[in-house]
Design a protein around this nucleic acid. Structure first.
Lengths: 170, 170
DNA sequence: CGACTTTCAGAAAGATTTGCTGTCACTGAG
DNA sequence: CTCAGTGACAGCAAATCTTTCTGAAAGTCG
């Protein structure tokens, strides 16, 4: 037997993804109607998208205002050495901190960009002390405190099929 | 009659939020079991959390790899003038671009931080031209191309009740 | 104390999920 | 060309879930 060949996403798959990204708690009946299928093949497609890793999960979007996460700060960090031991330790420290939502290794002047949600300024100082400054290799760090969130949209743009022709699952 | 007074979140609310953030497609039956209620009050609490804006929505998490959004770039932008007309125009341009996932007004050296997901480098150049460089007020921009996403977690940390005592809905 | 409010559980009706079956269209081998 | 074999689909039905209704228990305020 051959492994299930990962097929390219078709028009209906893209519609399903857009719908579920818009409202993850939609029922399969409604979803099927919106994409023009009956429930059975619609369910099968969703399960397949989950199996293939196209859909990574479903999340409720919470309002930071009510959860002591009012303050959003971006931090740029560069490390002294670029040894993998230091990098690993840095990653481990970052992973443990739930207040650090994102951490990306970037090219450019700095090594890492962090996105942190915290209750208030004092917690930010604490976080910097805990994570950033106690780590051995931190050379420099710069903080940007967010004054206003103009746009925050976790959604990924789901293209139309015609923009998407030659694109394949890999 | 008085408007429904927004009560503080209690232990069960926090559990519900954590569960729904972890898996937005959980059934009310399972959710009720996990938080130690029967389905009826559990459903009521969820609806109330939605009404009060604590839950802003439910989203499927899609894998950028399969949606032509492989490349993640952060852009820092500062504007020449800080007139509100320029700011407004900038915001409008940003809002229209689905590839710009986030845009934040920050304090510090730059005015805005953008987070963009795009198919590849050529699209990035295009985006810069479309949004950033055609706008009148852009003084300076700096790009950080993400080489590795160490951590990306849209979740907001849901505190335990004991860490949460004196916090109120406002 | 007594009325009122809030929160809860249980039951029941309605809706959804999910597995089963059969049909249709397409494909490749003979 | 013909005929399995395959994949995707719709319809149906049983199990499960959602959601409304009802009433009980606990707390609040006069």
């Amino acid at each position: 037997m051959k492994a299930s060949k990962p097929r390219a996403l078709d028009r209906i798959d893209l519609k399903i993804l857009a719908c579920l990204q818009d409202n993850a708690r939609i029922s399969y009946v409604d979803l099927a109607n919106q994409v023009g299928l009956s429930t059975t093949p619609c369910l099968e497609r969703v399960k397949r998208l989950e199996r293939n890793g196209v859909i990574k999960g479903y999340k409720a979007l919470l309002n930071p205002k009510y959860l002591r996460a009012n303050l959003l700060v971006f931090v740029e960090i560069s490390l002294e050495t670029q040894s993998s031991a230091v990098f690993d330790e840095f990653r481990r420290a970052v992973s443990k901190q739930p207040q650090i939502q994102e951490c990306h290794l970037v090219s450019g002047q700095f090594d890492y960009i962090l996105k942190c949600r915290i209750p208030e300024m004092s917690a930010y100082r604490q976080l910097l002390e805990d994570v950033v400054l106690t780590l051995p290799g931190v050379k420099e760090s710069k903080s940007y405190v967010v004054m206003e969130e103009v746009k925050e949209d976790a959604s990924i743009y789901v293209p139309e099929l015609n923009e998407f022709d030659e694109h394949q699952l890999t």
